[in-house]
């Protein structure tokens, strides 16, 4: 545990020394801010319109979308760069287990995403002050839980893919492709083919987020699903690093 924390702490600090990480943070917060302010403007111009006042999903919905494109940029460097710079040799000859390295890297990036998510809490606060009687608290908790779970799973996929490459751009594009597939494309075959659609529906991360967590419904099966994907990614990453020793 101690090694994981040491590695995560270092990784978290590195994010704050990397311009790209700031760009990702500004990108996520900026886009959501624009969407939210636009919605508030509309509401102000037309207070008695048929539109319902915005709820928390106006923050968490776009955020999940933005994560698909942002997380590959955060994870691409994590292990690919260690391999390119040769510092992986340093880590693999330090008294650290391979999985501790992987989990530490993941945890560092997870803490960074949690920081972004933490800053984004100003949006629900703003929303809460504008709407009477305030926003739906349960929906907000469930939506944010969803965002955290999606981030954890995405980051672990990114870490696993980063461990396979020496080149961070290769890691970026493969992770991006993988997440786009898992988030947007996997629902398509389920609609086309009748057989096997259960499997595709099971894997569909998008629908698990949007049709339950982001609507205030917390299902145990969704929690298990997201945590399983996270664990699987970290497991694969550890295996890949271990297999590097044998080459």
């Amino acid at each position: 545990m101690r090694n994981i924390w040491t590695i995560a702490k270092r990784e978290y600090k590195v994010f704050f020394a990397t311009p790209l990480a700031y760009i990702v943070m500004l990108f996520i917060l900026g886009v959501i801010g624009l969407i939210l302010s636009n919605a508030i403007m509309q509401l102000a111009n037309n207070p008695f319109g048929v539109n319902q006042p915005p709820d928390i999903s106006i923050v968490t919905g776009p955020m999940s979308f933005l994560l698909v494109f942002s997380i590959p940029a955060l994870t691409m460097r994590l292990l690919a760069d260690e391999q390119r710079m040769g510092t992986l040799e340093l880590m693999l000859t330090a008294p650290v287990r391979d999985w501790e390295l992987i989990v530490g890297k993941w945890l560092g990036s997870f803490l960074y995403i949690l920081t972004i998510i933490g800053v984004s809490l100003i949006f629900p606060l703003i929303l809460n002050s504008l709407i009477t009687p305030g926003i739906d608290q349960q929906k907000m908790l469930s939506g944010y839980l969803g965002i955290i779970l999606v981030s954890a799973a995405f980051l672990s996929i990114g870490v696993a893919i980063s461990s396979m490459f020496n080149n961070q751009f290769a890691a970026f594009f493969l992770t991006l492709g993988f997440l786009v597939g898992l988030w947007f494309l996997i629902g398509i075959p389920a609609q086309i083919f009748s057989s096997g659609s259960e499997l595709f529906n099971y894997l569909n991360m998008n629908s698990r987020f949007h049709s339950s967590l982001n609507r205030g419904v917390i299902n145990l099966s969704d929690l298990v699903y997201f945590l399983s994907i996270t664990a699987l990614g970290l497991f694969i990453g550890s295996i890949v690093i271990e297999s590097r020793r044998w080459r």
Binding site: R10, T18, M85, T93
Partner: peptide, 10 residues
């Protein structure tokens, strides 16, 4: 190691 790998950003 021969290549003296170090974290340049630290």
């Amino acid at each position: 190691p021969e290549t003296v790998p170090l974290y340049n950003d630290m």
